[in-house]
């Protein structure tokens, strides 16, 4: 008797979300099956990897990843164009880290000038992120939303402390919104509910349940993402049906394993390979958990993840 592989069918579906405009627009989400289960249903869009750039030079990135952007990382426009033209980036994630009050403390106006310059120079979707300072972000991201009006960017991260202003700005200026909660599935659902209760269409949200690096709590992120996706698909929970984002690079490139030199830890092997592998493994794990949008740093890690996606698709 011929073997028939068992198939699951699901009652829910992930919202398809489009970012960017015109020829450069890209869609993500839209599937009605678990990650890469194309044999059970429809996966209209592949996961999207965005290259992370910053408004200020990446002084705190380890040399291995900093050196990849030598000569371009002093200027966000050059940096973005390098990622697109040389590395084939399909999306850019601009982190306005220079606005943090403990850092360069750039003003919202300066930051939105950077947003405008980058937008003028690229034709792929732009993800605009703040410095993760709840108060400052609500100022910076509101201004950035206005500057980027109708460019269909993905803006965030809106958190419990500041979602009202950021969501209102994203709604008024036609952007998608990243809703981030801190590794708690119930709070993630609650934040999405609160945002939709403002009148924000939940099909325009990207859920960020908070990432973590391999060895530093990855299993928590994995588990929360997996349960969000199961709620979306098996319970048809519309509050949990937005695509999910994994902000991988910033968590991976600050841990010891991506920084400790071989001279200190010869057993750990090549620092270069180690860092790339760490980012690629973290990212591909979160793809398996359900992430549709990844923000990454090292070109070699991105290449590895993209080929992983091709092989599983």
């Amino acid at each position: 008797m011929a073997f028939t592989p068992p198939k699951e069918s699901y009652s829910g579906k992930v919202f398809p979300v489009e970012a960017g405009t015109g020829d450069g627009a890209v869609s993500l989400g839209g599937e009605n099956v678990l990650p890469f289960h194309a044999f059970e249903g429809e996966i209209p869009n592949k996961p999207l990897v965005a290259y992370e750039i910053q408004d200020v030079p990446p002084a705190d990135w380890p040399d291995e990843v900093k050196s990849q952007y030598e000569g371009v990382s002093d200027d966000p426009v050059k940096w973005a164009k390098h990622c697109i033209d040389e590395l084939g980036a399909k999306a850019i994630a601009l982190r306005l880290v220079g606005t943090h009050p403990d850092g360069a403390n750039r003003s919202a106006d300066d930051a939105s000038k950077t947003v405008k310059d980058v937008l003028d120079a690229i034709n792929v979707p732009l993800i605009i992120m703040g410095s993760n300072h709840a108060e400052k972000d609500s100022e910076v991201l509101v201004k950035a939303s206005e500057t980027a009006k109708d460019k269909n960017c993905i803006i965030g991260k809106a958190q419990e402390a500041n979602y009202k202003t950021i969501a209102a700005a994203a709604m008024a200026n036609n952007h998608k919104l990243i809703a981030m909660s801190e590794l708690d599935i119930n709070l993630s659902k609650q934040l999405n509910i609160l945002i939709t209760q403002m009148g924000f269409d939940n099909a325009r949200i990207i859920t960020d349940p908070m990432s973590s690096a391999l060895g530093y709590g990855l299993e928590y992120t994995y588990s929360v993402m997996e349960r969000i996706r199961l709620a979306a698909l098996t319970q048809n929970d519309t509050t949990m049906q937005p695509p999910m984002m994994a902000d991988v690079g910033m968590y991976v490139w600050k841990i010891k394993e991506t920084q400790a030199p071989e001279s200190d830890l010869p057993d750990w092997g090549s620092l270069k390979e180690r860092g790339i592998a760490w980012e690629a493994v973290t990212a591909s794990s979160l793809l398996l958990a359900g992430a549709e949008l990844l923000v990454m740093r090292h070109p070699e890690a991105v290449k590895t993840v993209n080929s992983f996606v091709e092989e599983l698709s």
Binding site: I185, N186, L187, K189, Q190, I193, L194, Q197, R227, A231, Q235, D237, T239, M240
Partner: peptide, 12 residues
């Protein structure tokens, strides 16, 4: 466990 808990579950 048929729906995921959130503080606002009654409002959904």
């Amino acid at each position: 466990g048929r729906t995921l808990y959130a503080h606002s579950y009654l409002e959904m």
